[in-house]
Write a protein that binds this DNA or RNA. Structure first.
Lengths: 244, 244
DNA sequence: GCTCTTTATAGTCGCATTGACTATTAAGGG
DNA sequence: CCCTTAATAGTCAATGCGACTATAAAGAGC
C-alpha cells in the first residue's frame, strides 16, 4: 500500500473510492443506552473503539453489506427484530488518513443485547454505555451523535420505539425507551394515554401480565402493532435543537 | 474480501467503486412543482431525462461535488437561497448497467427558477413539471419520489418552505408552497394563524405590501425568520403514507 | 397478620392548538 | 358601481396534552 498514484487502471474515467458501511447499533441494557463498538486491532486508531463496519463488496448494496458486517464482526446474525436504517453518507476527503473512503452509515436498533464476539478485524467487541467511550476512531463520534439524534427524532414521529423492546413488553418498558434515548422523564399516565390512543402502535396480549421484576402491580403485556407513523407525533418535552 | 478486480490494481484490498452525486432540484414555477432535469446525450438512456449529477472528484466531499455539478451542468451557480441537503445513498449493484456506481442523492430547493443552460454531458437542461417526465434514466424515478416525500415531511417539521420563496414573499405564496408540494388545499386563515404563531418562522417587512399580480387586497410582505424547526409541527391534513 | 413501598392503571381539570367556519377590508374589472 | 378576487380578522367547538389526584395489586419487612 505504498503508492498513492493509480497505475495502469484507466478503465474508468473517474477516481475510484473505497465504499464502506458504518453501523451505529443501539440497544438498552440495564436501563441505559448502549452502543455496539469494536476495538481496532491495527493502525490507524489501533486500540481505539470504533463503530463496526467494513467494505462493501462488489455484489452488495450498502444495506446488504451492513447486515453482513454486523454478523461477521460481532456475531450478531439473524437477530430477531433488528431494525436497520440508512442514516447518511460521510464523504469528507480526509476522514480516513490512509485513503479516500466514502462511508454509508446506518442506525440499527436491537431489542435485547446478546453479548457480541469479536470477529475478523476487531480485537474486541462489546456493548458500551453510550456516554462512555469517547473519542472513537475516525469521525465515528460524529456519526454516533448523528445516529442518536436521528433515533430521538424518529421516536417522536414513528413507532420505532418498539424496535428496542422484546416481542412482548409492558408500557413501562416502552416508556423507558423514550426516557433513555431522550434523557428526560415522562409522565406515566400521559404516556399511557398517548400510546393507547394511537391506533396500531401497540396491541394488548390477551390475558397476559408480567411481574416486572417483582415489586409493584403486574403490568399488562403488549405487542408491537402494525402502524409505523405516529399521528400526531409524540414530541419530547424539551423542545430544543432538533434536526433540520 | 472478494477480488474480482482486473489488471494490476491491487493498491487497495477492496473493490473500488465510482461515487457520484445526483440532485433532485425542486422549485415552484407557474404555481406547479418543477424539477430540474437534463437530457442525456449518450447511452445508456440517451435521450432520456435524468437528474443532474456526476462523479465526485478526489478532493471533494459529496456536498461540494453536488454544488459543483449543479453549477457545471446547468449553469445554476451562486443561486441565492439555494438549500442543499443530503437525501440518502443509492447503492444497488445493478443501478448503472455500465459499472458499479454508488450515488449520494441530494435535494435542493430554489426560490426562483432561472432557466438553466445545458453543460458538458447534457444535451438539454430545463425545468420540467414534476408529474410529467417519466420514466427517468437509471433509478432516478425512485430518487425523485424519495426527494418529494422527504421535502413533504420537512415542510411539516421545519421552516424549509421559505427556501422555495424569494427573499420577500406573502403568506399566500408561502401557503402555495405547502399546497403545491403536498397536493392538498389548506384553509387560509388557519394557515396564517399557524405561521404567525410560530416564533421565527417569518418576520414582517415593515410597511411593505405587494399587489399580488393585480386583483385582490394587497398582501403584506414577510421575510424568512431565524427559526429552523416548527414546534409543534404543521401536519398535512391527509395523514397517509409518510416516511419512516 | 399488618403496613409500607413500589408500580400499574384510572380518571379529572384546564389550557393550548386546531379544524371549520363567518365577516370584513381592499384592490381590479366590467 | 356592483361584481369578483384575495387578504385579513375573528368565532366556536373539539381535541390533544400537561399537570395532577386516586385507586389497585403486587412484594418487603416486621
Amino acid at each position: 500500500m505504498g503508492h498513492t498514484q493509480p497505475h495502469g487502471y484507466d478503465k474508468y474515467a473517474y477516481e475510484p473510492f473505497a465504499v464502506t458501511v458504518d453501523l451505529a447499533v443501539l440497544t438498552i441494557r440495564s436501563g441505559a443506552l448502549h452502543v455496539l463498538l469494536v476495538e481496532r486491532g491495527q493502525d490507524p486508531y489501533a486500540g481505539h473503539w470504533a463503530l463496526p463496519g467494513g467494505f462493501v463488496e462488489p455484489s452488495e448494496s450498502a444495506e446488504t453489506a451492513a447486515r453482513r458486517e454486523l454478523a461477521e464482526e460481532t456475531g450478531l446474525a439473524d437477530v430477531t427484530g433488528l431494525h436497520l436504517e440508512q442514516l447518511r453518507t460521510y464523504s469528507e476527503p480526509d476522514r480516513d488518513p490512509r485513503m479516500r473512503v466514502v462511508s454509508v452509515a446506518f442506525t440499527a436498533l436491537l431489542p435485547d443485547a446478546p453479548e457480541p464476539h469479536a470477529g475478523s478485524d476487531a480485537a474486541r467487541a462489546g456493548w458500551l454505555a453510550y456516554d462512555k467511550p469517547r473519542p472513537l476512531a475516525f469521525d465515528h463520534d460524529r456519526i454516533l451523535a448523528d445516529a442518536h439524534e436521528h433515533v430521538g427524532t424518529q421516536l417522536e414521529l414513528t413507532c420505532l420505539a418498539t424496535a428496542f423492546c422484546p416481542a412482548e413488553f409492558t408500557l413501562g418498558e416502552l416508556q423507558h425507551v423514550y426516557e433513555t434515548v431522550w434523557g428526560t422523564a415522562l409522565d406515566r399516565p400521559n404516556f399511557r394515554r398517548k400510546v393507547l390512543a394511537t391506533p396500531g402502535f401497540v396491541e394488548p396480549v390477551p390475558g397476559a401480565a408480567r411481574l416486572t421484576g417483582g415489586r409493584g402491580k403486574p403490568a399488562a403485556l403488549y405487542r408491537a402493532g402494525t402502524a409505523t407513523t405516529l399521528q400526531p407525533p409524540l414530541l419530547r418535552p424539551n423542545p430544543e435543537g432538533r434536526s433540520a
